[in-house]
Structure formats: structure tokens, C-alpha cells
Amino acid sequence: MRYKINLSIVLALFWLLNSGHYTYLILALGAVSIAIVVFITHRMDVVDHESQSINLSLTAPKFGIWLAKEIVVANLTVIKHIWLGNKSISPTVITVKASQKTDVGKVIYANSITLTPGTVALGLVGNEIMVHALIRENIEALESGDMDRRVSQLENS
């Protein structure tokens, strides 16, 4: 039941922000559409059983800022190697260990790896993530475990 209420609130916010017209007819139509969506998710039986609650802590904004900085730096590196040409790249495939316990933590870690250009997560099996990297320095930065530690902090606290 809690997830259904949360889902309704999120859908209502999304609808209100996207609409921009606030007359009674439009609001009623929005309420009806939200009710239909919640009913369909109830029929599909996905909301209350399969969804996981996301308990992100106060360190999430700090992680976001750090990730944005990493994305900018990695983008500039990849741009440099694009203009330097094929002689300067050294593609590598390795597997790194993910030390997170929950599935949400692992997904956040794999998505962070993919979001920084230069490293792409190719597969996630158990505790190991298969990573393709454009240059070797990216691999070394990943194996030092800085990002892994930060995602684990995000998960624990």
C-alpha cells in the first residue's frame, strides 16, 4: 500500500509539472489517468512485491557532484583521444569486483561506470562486472576502487 501511495504522488507531480494548465476539467482528467495507471500496476502485481525501496542517504548529493566531476574529466579525455586518432587508444576488457551487497547498489555502480565515457559495463554476473575500457589509465583508475568505495558508502549510511 505504501508503494501505491508513493507511486500516486510521483505520478501526480509528474503530471502537474508536465501539464501547465490548471482548470478543473484537465485536473479531473489527470486524476482519472493516475487512477488508471495505479489500477493497471495493481493488476500487473508489480508494485508491492517486486519493487525495492531506495534508501538513499544524505551523501547522495555529494556522490552526484563527484560523479558529475568525473564525467566531465572522462569526457575531456575521450575527446582528446578521438582527435589524437587510433594510434593513441588501447582498448582493454577486464572484470572488476563490486563490493556492494544489494542489487540497487550494484546497479548504481554499473551505471556510474557506463556514465563515465571511456569505460562501459558489458555484463554484470554475481559480484563481477565486465568492463570495456578505451585506454589503460581508465582501468587503473577503476581498479583503485575509488568509485566502488563511494557507492558502498552511499549504500551503507
Binding site: 564525467i71 566531465v72 569526457n75 575521450v78 575527446i79 578521438i82 587508444i89 582498448p91 557506463t114 556514465l115 565515457p117 571511456g118 562501459v120 558489458l122 570495456h132 578505451l134
Partner: peptide
Amino acid sequence: YTRMHAVGVTDTL
């Protein structure tokens, strides 16, 4: 696989 990195640049920053 290397082309995926180039697409990643245009998708993020």
C-alpha cells in the same frame, strides 16, 4: 566497443 565510448560522450556531457 570503442565506438560505444564515442556515443557515450554525445549522450552525457
